[in-house]
Design a binder for these strands. Sequence first.
DNA 1: TCGCAGCTGAGACTTAGTCTCATCCATGCC
DNA 2: GGCATGGATGAGACTAAGTCTCAGCTGCGA
Lengths: 168, 168
Amino acid sequence: MPTIDREIHRFQEFLLHQGQKLTKERTALVREIFGTHYHFEADELLFKMKQKSVKISRATVYRTLELLVKSGLVRRVHLGEDHYHYEHVRGDSHHDHLVCTACGSVIEFNDPELEQRQLEICARKKFTPTFHNLQILGVCDSCRRKGEQPASPDRVMSIGEGAMRLRK
Amino acid sequence: MPTIDREIHRFQEFLLHQGQKLTKERTALVREIFGTHYHFEADELLFKMKQKSVKISRATVYRTLELLVKSGLVRRVHLGEDHYHYEHVRGDSHHDHLVCTACGSVIEFNDPELEQRQLEICARKKFTPTFHNLQILGVCDSCRRKGEQPASPDRVMSIGEGAMRLRK
DNA sequence: TCGCAGCTGAGACTTAGTCTCATCCATGCC
DNA sequence: GGCATGGATGAGACTAAGTCTCAGCTGCGA
Ligand SMILES: [Mn+2]
Ligand SMILES: [Mn+2]
Ligand SMILES: [Zn+2]
Ligand SMILES: [Zn+2]
């Protein structure tokens, strides 16, 4: 996978630029993240590494995710659950999320008109925006057909593959 | 304050309807919430009660907030920090938030055009929305004038009055 | 006024994430 | 390649925010 090697290279460039090092743990994490996952959780990543018998500590997972976010390769997002999710930044494009509270699936969208309207609101309030965070919770098409009911606002049914607890 | 008594009455109606009781602890919390705060944290509320020598446990604070949310008198919101905030629902109107990362102030807005655009996006994706959550982080007008720089996306400078730690 | 279903407080527990520190190793320089 | 060294790692203690348990208390309808 030459694509992943390019991500690793980009990460190394970022690291070296700050006098930091590309270790085998960091390489393994980048490989895992860009090889498999999409919206994932820190603990899920930790579990996947354990499964593959690649021994990496929780501290390193969190530290590496923080570096990846700083480097711009990964983005940290809220999806309506009580913990963060991460996603790899492909290309660049900002997007927001529709989250199905019945099956946990996530639909991405990028709507320039919506973004524009947000800027207008900020201008009207003399507010200088740097960042925003929008999730729309509801029921996806296939769940609606199956007759799934909208869940209570704050109970999203686990997004992603549900990382299997690691701590005893 | 006859207004607060009306809120208390509404809460009692809600409770009785479910075979639940209006206790003095619940009354005291409603009085505090509707008398003083706006966007507040659970721990902040706990601290305020302690200050006033009204002895209420953390468990009761959280349990009462949950009931108030269910009753529709209070709403639980994300404002870009790692914990929830609560606000009293006055009238009814849904709104979203601009959060200043320099001073922690919160500006509310309700923009029907933005809401409409969200519905259009959902329709296009055949998604049935039930709820959404939008925060725009940035720098408010008065902070911008003071030359405050936009903080890193995930470091909001404490919103509200910063509840003073209670646990040792 | 009484009975009891529902409520409370103290503190143990949980989840998600951060921090510490002794030890390890990636990189740059010879 | 070998070495030096400052950054990185792992184990596990620690923290923050919130949930749960259970013995004793209390609001409220009869
Ligand atoms: Mn995404
Ligand atoms: Mn608000
Ligand atoms: Zn679904
Ligand atoms: Zn400000």
